[in-house]
Design a protein around this nucleic acid. Sequence first.
DNA 1: CATAAATTACCGTAAACACGGTATTTCTTA
DNA 2: TAAGAAATACCGTGTTTACGGTAATTTATG
Lengths: 216, 216
Amino acid sequence: MPTENTHTIWIVEDDPIFKESLEDLITMTDGFHLGHTANSVEKAIQAFGIKENPDIILEDIGLPGLSGIEAISIYKKLFPNVLIVILTIFDDDERVFEAIKAGADGYLLKRAPGSEIIHNLQQLIQGGATLSPPIAKKVMNMLVKPSQQKTIKNPLTKREVIITKYLVDGLTINEIADKLVISKHTVDTHTKNIYKKLHVHNRSNLATVAIKKGLI
Amino acid sequence: MPTENTHTIWIVEDDPIFKESLEDLITMTDGFHLGHTANSVEKAIQAFGIKENPDIILEDIGLPGLSGIEAISIYKKLFPNVLIVILTIFDDDERVFEAIKAGADGYLLKRAPGSEIIHNLQQLIQGGATLSPPIAKKVMNMLVKPSQQKTIKNPLTKREVIITKYLVDGLTINEIADKLVISKHTVDTHTKNIYKKLHVHNRSNLATVAIKKGLI
DNA sequence: CATAAATTACCGTAAACACGGTATTTCTTA
DNA sequence: TAAGAAATACCGTGTTTACGGTAATTTATG
């Protein structure tokens, strides 16, 4: 029976063996109890309002039918305060990223030992999020990559950077010349040099390159 | 004495009380031993080549002098395979982000219990990264935010999106017409409509808006 | 101080753009 | 099935771009 300090867990998992071992794990652990289990997202949703609302949903990501990722936003609407933990055998970047973006609160690998899973659930309840270490590494790498690219040294001179900004902003050569109080011919020359340096041949290219490489 | 299975830890921490409790924690724990401890980045660096190289450096982020974040890249150069764990009482977004970008392998809160810290170090050695749950939550939120902005509904039709991509890529109207096997007049019409919808008046603007709003 | 790099300036032209208007056909979807 | 959205197509025109070449002056920098 649930007490004030007991948290209701739902399990959504299609692999019967893993599902059962999860059920056992939850049942055996103080502070948690099994609210409902299903082998598909659809069936889990059907239990809405019938079974006791979950505090945490443990869900496989690779379910047939509605995928676990699509399900996340649905759960969040049905149970506004629910915590969703994705359990998966995969640790591929795409899925991690999609699940996190969809609002998952944790992402654990199935190969993690039961004690690990329980430990993470407890931490989740205390207000954090939880990532398996290999997942954490991937997530951190995602954050690092863009900043490394930022370090590309800007091949443009000061003046060229200024003019590039105006070009990207869509000003005409004449407008730029007016702004900088120089001849339009000069702006034209700078533009040619900028194009040459960045290997672009029109403003669209320039804008794309300048923005993506953080040159301006 | 270090054995094959023992990992050398360095501690860089200026708070003497916390430093001592960390030292005790490491000393008491099987599989780890204390290599060197310092109360500043500068002193830690001075021990390079003298003391036994670290497998893991535990470091406070808010050190006087050279900050812990600045130190990360230095350590990584001195000890190419070192794992760096940031320990802090703060969990403010900026520092987390900076430390991760600088290449930290873990980010733990000082208020975490010793068992937690040890546990995380062990996981780190096994190849993951490690984040305290409150930190994990912040990091995950960072990933979610940009994607929420992405949810701005794209006012462009399918065809317009395709043509926008080509326009941003710098193709001429004629080139686009050829690619899509439609008349250049049609591409021209689409372009006009795209400009109207996005309130832009030239390709630079289009590229900027399309990229920044994630429309393409 | 000498040399290179950066900034300035001018000319000409084919190609492309931006945008006005108008109009038919083909989806969608209420 | 009727109405609206989307995709298609054509015309004309003034403006702007992209890029070729050439060159003087100013500003670093070794």
